[in-house]
Structures are given as C-alpha cells and as structure tokens.
Design a protein around this nucleic acid. Sequence first.
RNA 1: GGCGCGUUCGUCUAGUGGUUAGGACGCCGGCCUCUCAAGCCGGUAACACGGGUUCAAAUCCCGUACGCGCUACCA
Length: 488
Amino acid sequence: MTTETSTPIRVRFAPSPTGFLHVGGARTAIYNDLLRQRLGGAFILRIEDTDRQRSDEAMTRQIQDALAWIGVTWDEGPFLQSERLERHRERARELLDGGLAYRAYETPDELEALRAAARAEGGEFRYRAGRSPLAAAEIARRAGDGDPFVVRFRMPDEPIRFHDLVRGDVEFPPEALDDLILLRSDGSPTYHMSVVADDIDMAVTHVIRGEDHLSNTPKHVAMFAAFGAPAPTFAHLPLILGTDRKRLSKRTGATSVEEFRGQGILPQALYNFLALLGWSPGDDRELMSRAEMAAVFSTDRLNDSAAVFDPDKLGWMNAQYMASLPLAALRPHLEPFLEAAGLAAAAGPRLDAALDLHRTRARTLADLAAAVKPYFAETIDYDPALTAGFAAQEELPGDLRELAARWRSLAAFDVAPLEDALRALCAERGAKAGHLIHPVRMALSGAKAGPPLFDLVAVMGPEATARHLESFLAHLAASPPPASGAGG
RNA sequence: GGCGCGUUCGUCUAGUGGUUAGGACGCCGGCCUCUCAAGCCGGUAACACGGGUUCAAAUCCCGUACGCGCUACCA
C-alpha cells in the first residue's frame, strides 16, 4: 500500500552541518517541503551535529540560509541534536532497563581483530547478543573492574520488513544486521540512537531521505518497535550523479546550493530543476512553480533510479525564469551581481529597459549583469580581436562621426528617428545598413551580437551613446594598422 | 566478499501487456531578422544483455553484466 494519509503529516529534514548544503540534500528538503505543502502538517528542521568533530556552527547557519534562499521553509526548529544528548542517553537507558539493550565490553581493537579474522575466512563479522567473543568470566571481570563499555541494541532474530514509498517492500535478513551501538564508551549517543529518539519525540510521520540510509532503515525499524512506537513511513530517494555517472562531486562541477547561487542561478530555477530530478508531475509540464508542484505532488511519482545532474538543462531553466519573471522579482536577485560588476548605483527605468532587452539573452544573473554594464559604465573595454575588422575599414571613422552628429541633432532619441538617420546615411554612402549597424553595436556594447541595435541605442540614451562612440573612435585610431600583404 | 537497491534517446523523464515508444535539455536544419538570443517549425537519438511466461513484453518472472549504497564506538 502506498496510500498517503490525508491527515496532517510531520516531516523532517535532518542535515549534518559538515559542509555546504549539497544539491542532493536540497532536493531531499524540497521533496519534504512539497509533501508537507500537499498534505498539510509540519516541516521540522533538525541539525544532526552529534559528530562534534566534523560539525561546524557556521555550517549550521549556512544550511539555514541556503534552505531559506531556495524557498524551503520550516515550521519547527532548527533543533540541534547536540542539545538533546541527555534525552538520547535517557532513551538508551530505557532500552537497557527493559532488557532490549545490553552492555558490551569489547574494545575497538578487539572488534577490529574479529572483523579482520572473519574477513580472512571470507565471511563477515556480526556482533549479536550471546555470541560475544569474550568468555563469560572475562566479561564479568571487566564489568567488575568498571571497564568502559558500549550499550548495544538487541537486534531481533526475525527478518525485518518495511514498506518504502519509493522502493516498495524491502526485507533484510537478520544475519545482515549487527547489534548496533546505541551509546559509545564515552556515553555519547550514536547517530542511530539520536535519530530514532528524535523521530519519536518529534512525532515524525514521514521520513524522506537519501538512498544511502536504506540499509540503516531496518535498524531504525527495529528500534521503533522496541520503543513501542509506530515506525514512520519511509521514502528513500535515489542518488544524484555527476556527468561522469559517479556520485556528484566537486570534480565534475558545482555541488552546493551556494555555488549555484554564486553563479547566478535563480532560486526558483534551482528548486524547479531539483524537484524534477527524480520526480515528475505525470504530464509534460516542466516549468512549474513551487505552488504548482505542491498542488500535484505525490510520492507515488518519485523515481527509483539515480539521476545525472545536467548543468546545461539547469542553465536553460534558469534562462526561462530570467526571461519570464516580473522585473520586480528579478531585481533583488540581480543586485549582488550588479554590485560585483560595479553597478551598485544602477537603477530606475533605464535599468529596467536594459534588463528587458537582455533577459532573453542571458543564462545566468552574472551574464545579465555583464550585459547591462555598458549602459551604465563610463568606459567599455574593447577586445582587439573583435574590433580588428572595423579598424581595417578606412572610411568607417568618418562615417561614425557623421552618424554621431546626426543623432546628436535628433529632436527625439527614439528608435524610429535613430534608425532613419542611420539608414539614410548608409544609403548616401551606397552601403547597406550593416555597414554602420555592426560597428555601432560593437562601439556601444563591446559585443558583436546583441539586441536589435536601435532598441539598444534608445535605451542607452544620448549621453552614453555619444561617449561610447567617441571612445570607440579613439580605440580604432589606436589600433594597429591591418597587416599588409597576404589576403589584403 | 555479504546484504540491499537500481538499469527507456548523450542527459532529465512519460510509459504499469497491444503506442509509428511521447515530452524536455543538448545537438543539427529552417522561419523570423541589422547580429545574437527568445519564439515558432522540423530533424537526430533509447527500452543493458540472455532466457522464460503470454496470441502479444519496455512493461511480469529468472539469470548475467554493469552501476550505486550499506557492511564504524561517521552521519
């Protein structure tokens, strides 16, 4: 049965703060977010920082920032698992008192030796109650001496079955499971102890997490049973792979939400893209808002095989959002990029007009900011490789000067008169309009391609146009003469 | 090694016994056009392999190959 309750659910996203929020983690958060929106209930954010060595407070903050940026909101938390250690110990003690867990006195070295020996015989060492490699007398001695011990969970002897919303019915034989450690010899709870204790205390109903936890799930299922608590419904998501078909890593490109943000990807695009990496609405829709997805989200349509992260498609999707989002929604996200481009002051109708001219021509916010720069920048850095062709045209400077003069005398700096003036001049010179259109585009934008020229000029305005035309003329004058000889 | 999970165009996916195997990204071509995008139109390209079951299999079963996960006093 894959039925989802129609009653409110409680989901949680539980990252460990050992690094930036990974896109895999972000996608997990997104599915939790979508399911909670679809069915109602609560989203709990829980930071699993029980590994003190690797956890970092800055990362805890960063993860929250990244989540908020991408548009995932939580109703409860963030709870720091490290602040609940006492509760986790208490829960372990309950199991101990109830005989569902026991003390074990082997040292890590002894355990390692056992594992090595088992492997040498081609087998696998399993730690189970009553099968301690230590003699009863030795155990008694260590207990009596107050030697350090771990608390182990007594794993049941029957196969453990559970239903996974993505995988279907899954069964693990008892031989595959150890009596896992609940409390380390220093008394600190392990991940498994903390997760189960928290999921029970927080009344979590649905656990959506990465496939790497599938093999942990039978352990957790057994523990829920030991506590007499109903196990939550599980959904284990397939991994996200890099273009090399290996687990996504920095080797093949960006992996963290932060990196994509820095590249100029919109949060709406990343959310949309990630959501579709392992889920589809069932029809052919791809561009969908969070609300649209939430309206039709179902775990039934979660995919069960790994997906390769395709940066090209993300770029396309980002371009779609940049082209269609209301300017007001786009601007706040663009701001940091404008600032980085030295355009912190750019604003107003000119900026909006320029944005409209370039938004369908950029893939990222960084591209957009760069494209809009010439409208506000004092100068343009011309690339000699792109201007060499113009520098070779002897009559061009004179024609450009004449054009500048005619444009200057225009009553209105609008598309039609600008175009008429340029075409008339070209006609007088017996040239096609391209004779001036292309060099002027280069002069005003530093690029050989871009928006329709007269739109560009009108938005640029008389001052910037005159200024850039002037410096382009200077650039041409300073350009080395065309190579003589071969080719001519 | 053991246990678990997976495998449809290069990539993301639709498909749940009968389809010309659909859509999207990418790529190629066309239209539009002052160029480039966008948009529109068209093209390219897939059921990992081998056995079954069945009148009929991408869909069900078994095996093989390949990939991945777990196998810690990490999470």
